[in-house]
């Protein structure tokens, strides 16, 4: 899952995926902006069926590839 998320971020931001490590802070480091966040929310919904609630829009859930993957994992478990 991390690789797919990394691939999405790299593809939409024209960034070399090797630069985006699991713990790279994608917003703090300027890789992603607010358009990127909106695109990511769309992507998580279409790819994993994960609907992001307003209160879940936290750096803890979206700050890095590993945090996004953990968030998606948790949401999928909740759905099942």
């Amino acid at each position: 899952m991390k690789e797919k998320i990394r691939g999405f971020i790299a593809e939409t931001t024209f960034t070399d995926p090797e630069i985006i490590l699991d713990n790279t802070m994608i917003f703090e480091d300027g890789i992603f902006d607010s358009m990127g966040l909106l695109g990511l929310i769309n992507y998580l919904e279409s790819e994993y069926g994960v609907v992001t609630e307003d209160v879940e829009l936290q750096e803890e859930n979206f700050g890095s590839v590993e945090r996004i993957a953990a968030f998606v994992d948790r949401k999928i478990h909740q759905m099942n």
């Binding site: 917003f27 902006d33 607010s34 966040l37 307003d54 829009l57 750096e59 979206f62």
Partner: peptide
Amino acid sequence: EFVGKNLPPVH
């Protein structure tokens, strides 16, 4: 609620 977060704002 988005003020002061480290995430970019969502409209």
